[in-house]
Amino acid sequence: MQFDLGDIRALLAVAEAKGFREAGRLTGSSASGLSDAVRRLEAQLGVRLLNRTTRSVVPTEAGRALLERLGPAVAEMQAALNIASGFRDRPAGLLRLNVPVSAAKLVLPSIVPDFLKAYPDIRLEIVTEESFVDIIAAGCDAGIRYDERLEQDMIAVPIGPRVQRFAFAASTAYLDAHGRPQHPRDLLEHACIRGRFAGRPIPAWEFEHGDEVVKVDPPGPLIVQSGGGSDLGVYAAIAGVGIVALFEDWLQPHFENGALEPVLKDWWQSFSGPFLYYPGRRLVPAPLRAFIDFIKARKPEADASGL
Rank of each mutant, 00 (worst) to 15 (best):
S226C: 09
P279K: 04
P203M: 08
V14Y: 01
R298K: 13
G28K: 09
D7R: 00
D36A: 13
I243P: 02
L5T: 07
N82S: 14
P274E: 05
L34M: 06
Y146N: 10
L124A: 01
A92W: 00
A103M: 06
G280M: 07
R52G: 04
V241M: 15
G33C: 03
E248N: 15
A173M: 10
S32M: 12
V284L: 12
V58F: 09
R40W: 08
A237N: 05
S56E: 15
V107P: 02
E129T: 13
R123T: 14
P285C: 10
A170L: 10
I292F: 10
A167K: 03
A142S: 08
L288F: 04
G19D: 02
V74K: 04
P262W: 04
D231E: 14
A84W: 10
A79C: 06
W250H: 15
F87I: 06
L188K: 11
P113I: 02
G195V: 02
L232W: 03
G71S: 13
R281N: 07
Q164M: 13
F20Q: 00
P120R: 01
G46I: 06
R162F: 05
K265E: 15
H209D: 04
A169R: 01
Y146M: 10
L150T: 10
D231W: 09
V112M: 08
P184A: 03
D7P: 00
E68Y: 08
